[in-house]
């Protein structure tokens, strides 16, 4: 059953990836659980990211450079790379699977409509942002994002997340995580521009691309190449051992957990 379920999801992951490529009408009508109109940002662009997992070496350069560039609090991440040891479904061989994650800048972002004050909103270029002047810190959006892409920044006391480094895109530069991607796995770009690298790669690999948690109908705009469909939802894995022991074997807790 599990297997079936997962491959069904895998199917969905692919289909949705395809479907989501035709950016939805950018003015979504307001109403319960459909987002308020998009505002700000360049309406001629639609940013997205493609992550070629075959090229991810799990170096965490993205994690750290993003953390520094965007001044995230210790222990909180705008992007992370999980690492798994996985058995190949057919061959049974073991290999390492790296899964970089960040905000998917969903076409149908569940984090946006729940915001009681419209502090979190989607720009017309698809980037989902948080207005930290307006945010009341209710954390509803944090719970509403299926991807754990958001957190409350303990320093600003407001919601925080990946902005696709909009401040760098605006300056004609690459996001920190893209710029420092050692394996060259992360590709960002304007999907409305058919000549952009991301558009070309999407066209080339259309059938292989997958997105995370397609069943949630969020239409993520971060696409994965080389994805194992068993990872598009919460993986059935032996969870990471989180204990930190001191030299005497005493559990020390996690240095950076806020609350």
């Amino acid at each position: 059953m599990d297997h079936l379920r997962r491959s069904l999801l895998g199917q969905l992951a692919r289909l949705s990836a395809g479907a989501a490529l035709i950016p939805l009408s950018s003015v979504a009508s307001a109403g319960i659980n459909s987002q308020p109109p998009r505002r700000e940002g360049d309406p001629t662009k639609r940013y997205g990211m493609l992550i070629d997992l075959r090229q991810c070496i799990g170096c965490q350069a993205c994690t750290v450079s993003c953390h520094i560039e965007n001044d995230a609090p210790m222990g909180k991440f705008r992007t992370t790379v999980s690492q798994y040891e996985v058995e190949h479904q057919e061959t049974g061989t073991l290999a390492t699977f790296m899964l970089p994650r960040l905000c998917n800048h969903c076409e149908n972002p569940p984090c946006v409509p729940v915001c009681p004050v419209q502090a979190t909103y989607q720009q017309q270029d698809g980037i989902v942002v948080v207005d930290s002047d307006r945010c009341v810190g209710c954390a509803y959006c944090v719970n509403a994002c299926p991807y754990d892409a958001r957190f409350i920044n303990d320093r600003t006391q407001t919601a925080d997340k990946c902005t696709f480094c909009a401040h760098r895109l605006e300056a004609g530069l690459l996001p920190a995580c893209v710029e420092s991607c050692v394996g060259g796995a992360r590709i960002i770009g304007d999907m409305r521009d058919p000549e952009s690298q991301i558009s070309r790669m999407i066209a080339e690999h259309r059938d292989e691309l997958m997105v995370l948690q397609p069943e949630k109908n969020t239409l993520p705009q971060v696409f994965y190449l080389g994805m194992d469909e068993r990872f598009i939802t919460r993986p059935l894995a032996e969870p990471v051992a989180l204990e930190v022991l001191d030299p005497h074997g005493k559990e020390m807790g996690y240095e950076f957990h806020g609350h």
Partner: peptide, 19 residues
């Protein structure tokens, strides 16, 4: 064991709503 993988590295996510 009914898992297909071992997770070596994953961040710790804090809860968003407190007691």
């Amino acid at each position: 064991m009914n898992s297909m993988a071992i997770e070596l590295l994953a961040p710790r996510y804090a809860i968003a709503w407190y007691p």
